[in-house]
């Protein structure tokens, strides 16, 4: 790992060292903040980016993507892999955490997902340590923080008169080197200067161990209570940075067609409904158990990272006002 200090201007200048990459940053458009392709010339020098409305997962795992084209009457298939190189700048540390959870599913368990793999290989993920907290975010309550690398390729710290770049990626390290006035080899993120980080009183949330959560799996009453106000709209799962469940469908164009995959959600009735009419998760009670335990028990148990990043998007979007922080507290209060 390399820690590089650069003058602010130099950082923006250094971006021309990435000519084969398209740049993506969060950009405000009306009410929403979108992750959009942008020119490296127009980047704000203060590196203030708003948090994107949807999570960064859409750049690596789009809401809909083509898997392959086919001819309907011939055994011919053409897989489609996204070859574009992208440098995503201005994400939050929680976005990087979310992508770690996707990596766990798509890359860490055989067989490897070729679509996600190619996109991840072609993407440089550069986060900026948060300059301020959002209204509903709570990564610090989960034991993480707005300054964590979280598996990003690099994180930028605001050092007032300069910027610090902690790089965990050979391409970034090599290409920024000549622009830095100070270069330091470091072993971890705790060794580096992080400048002034946003301060607030941390309200720790009672996060249980994956095994403790697992022991609640058969507590019908708990899941009944937690799901009682949910409308089942699934907005939370579409915006959640760690939700990766998908559906596979075919689209026809006369004699040809394509197979696509799209986001799907465990909050939907149709998600698990079987052809026979049997539904193993017939009510929101079972679906909430799935959603909650997947994030707080299964992902941590299987992959060693929490499936909730504390980004707060689910809290902001929920039409029923369900607050994940309250759910976490309710679950912890339940007698075990």
């Amino acid at each position: 790992m390399l820690f590089l200090k650069l003058a602010r201007k130099k950082l923006l200048e250094a971006l021309k060292e990435f000519p084969e990459y398209s740049f993506y940053t969060p950009k405000k458009e009306g009410e929403r903040v979108l992750l959009k392709e942008t020119s490296p010339d127009g980047l704000p020098e203060d590196l203030r980016f708003e948090r994107s409305t949807a999570s960064a997962k859409e750049l690596l795992f789009p809401q809909a993507e083509t898997m392959f084209y086919f001819l309907r009457y011939k055994p011919s298939q053409k897989p489609v892999l996204d070859e574009g190189k992208r440098l995503i700048l201005g994400l939050r540390p929680c976005d990087a955490h979310g992508i770690q959870a996707l990596e766990a599913n798509f890359l860490k368990v055989e067989p490897i997902d070729p679509y996600f793999k190619r996109r991840r290989e072609n993407t440089l993920l550069v986060t900026v340590a948060c300059l301020e907290f959002e209204d509903n975010c709570f990564c610090d309550s989960l034991g993480s923080g707005p300054d964590r690398l979280n598996g990003a390729d690099a994180i930028i710290y605001d050092l007032n008169d300069a910027v610090g770049v902690l790089s965990n990626n050979e391409i970034i390290s090599q290409r920024l080197k000549d622009y830095a006035f100070q270069i330091q080899e470091v072993r971890g993120e705790d060794e580096v200067e992080k400048g002034s980080l946003p301060q607030r009183t941390v309200e720790p949330l009672p996060i249980l161990s994956p095994e403790e959560y697992l022991s609640l799996i058969l507590e019908e009453k708990l899941w009944d209570k937690i799901s009682s106000t949910c409308l089942g709209c699934a907005s939370c799962t579409y915006l959640c940075p760690t939700c990766y469940c998908f559906d596979i469908q075919d689209i026809n164009y006369g004699p040809a067609g394509k197979r696509i995959r799209t986001y799907d959600s465990c909050m939907f009735n149709l998600y698990t409904l079987e052809a026979s009419g049997h539904n193993p998760r017939p009510t929101l009670k079972e679906r909430w158990r799935q959603r909650f335990l997947h994030k707080f028990s299964y992902i941590p148990y299987l992959h060693g990272i929490l499936g909730c990043t504390g980004c707060g998007r689910c809290i902001e979007v929920c039409p029923a006002g369900i607050d994940m922080r309250e759910v976490i507290k309710d679950v912890a209060k339940f007698p075990r």
Partner: peptide, 19 residues
Amino acid sequence: LERRMKCGIGKCGRCNIGL
């Protein structure tokens, strides 16, 4: 067990029961 399965390789999530 029978579940609605799409990917068949433990990625798409719908046949998840516990771990």
